[in-house]
């Protein structure tokens, strides 16, 4: 049995939850698990989200709704997942490789004496996994030599599950023991109308050629607004102080794979390409016709960004 952690969005299943389910179904088929059980943990609304999660083709949903689970903590969440994996005799435990999965799954692996495949892109026959290394410049096929296995999957590599059949939903009969070593203090959600960089359907990124923080506001933001896009930046732009660090796309920043990626004034250093080359359609605007970004762009426009961006924003 494969146990998959489903991260709901309040009382709703949400896109991330549906992607986790579809990745688990893909593992079931390729790696031959007899069944997949989805697990949801959280404060109020979890039961409702669990009910919704039961409609996407898994074999069973278990959930634990408890006020003490309202805020995620690695210690508490991982110990519940470990207990659930042991009680249900799971052979493998999986989650998405968002910050929650990245944070807690190695703890699960340690407790189950399992090897872990991080940021998995694909399940291969013979229980092998395909995953990126060197920021996606190398793709590795790996095998875990342990009896039990832990997997995190990259959400952009799987489509969201679609409704199909319904499965039983059960309350997880476990006691929540809160971790005294870790205490939740606060959460500041990014106060932005914009989608999250790693989840956005479109990303507009600027490079050093923008020349200033003000120009990011004046040229990049209106285009992003028009497209409902997230804003990204190259490391060079971040290092020059034009854009905050959490906008950085690349090997030392965030890895994105939107439907549309527009690179503006970005030359295309290896470290940047690593963070965006899996985007479906790539547009590059740069005045240097020799810039390496054009080698991977679907559509290139050789022009001064300050001349063409206002026009592009207007015509979209």
């Amino acid at each position: 049995m494969l146990l998959v952690l489903i991260e709901q969005n309040g009382s709703k299943l949400g896109k991330a939850g549906r992607i986790a389910i579809s990745a688990a179904l893909s593992a079931k088929e390729t790696h031959g698990y007899e069944s997949v059980v989805g697990v949801l943990l959280g404060g109020s609304g979890t039961a409702e989200a669990a009910k919704e999660a039961s409609k996407y083709g898994l074999d069973k949903i278990v959930y634990l709704e408890d006020p003490s689970l309202a805020n995620y903590l690695a210690g508490t969440y991982s110990s519940i997942l470990i207990d659930a994996a042991n009680n249900l005799e799971a052979k493998a435990v999986m989650s998405l490789s968002g910050t929650t999965g990245k944070d807690m799954m190695p703890r699960v692996a340690q407790a189950l004496d399992a090897g872990q495949s991080s940021d998995t892109l694909e399940f291969l026959p013979n229980r092998q996994y395909r995953r990126p290394m060197y920021a996606g410049n190398v793709i590795a096929d790996i095998e875990l030599t342990t009896e039990r296995q832990v997997v995190t999957v990259r959400s952009t590599a799987f489509d969201a599950a679609v409704e199909q059949g319904e499965c039983p939903v059960e309350n997880l009969d476990l006691k929540v023991e809160s971790d005294s070593q870790q205490q939740f203090v606060s959460f500041d959600s990014v106060d932005s109308e914009r989608p999250e960089l790693t989840e956005a359907e479109a990303v507009v990124s600027g490079g050093r050629a923008l020349k200033s923080e003000e120009n990011f506001k004046e040229y990049i933001e209106p285009l992003a607004d028009k497209l409902g896009a997230a804003i990204g930046a190259s490391r060079a732009a971040v290092d020059s102080g034009y854009a905050p660090n959490d906008w950085q796309v690349g090997q030392t920043g965030k890895v994105v794979a939107p439907n549309l990626y527009i690179a503006i004034g970005i030359s295309g250093a290896i470290q940047h390409l690593a963070g965006m080359k899996d985007s479906k359609t790539i547009v590059a605007i740069n005045k240097d016709a020799e810039a390496p970004i054009f080698e991977i762009a679907d559509y290139g426009l050789v022009a001064d960004l300050f001349d063409v961006l206002p026009e592009l924003t207007e015509k979209l």
Partner: peptide, 17 residues
């Protein structure tokens, strides 16, 4: 616990127009 069986470069992206 992890055995790397083989590594490969990522699929080439064709340059567009």
């Amino acid at each position: 616990k992890v055995k790397i069986l083989k590594v490969a470069p990522p699929a080439d992206r064709k340059a567009g127009i």
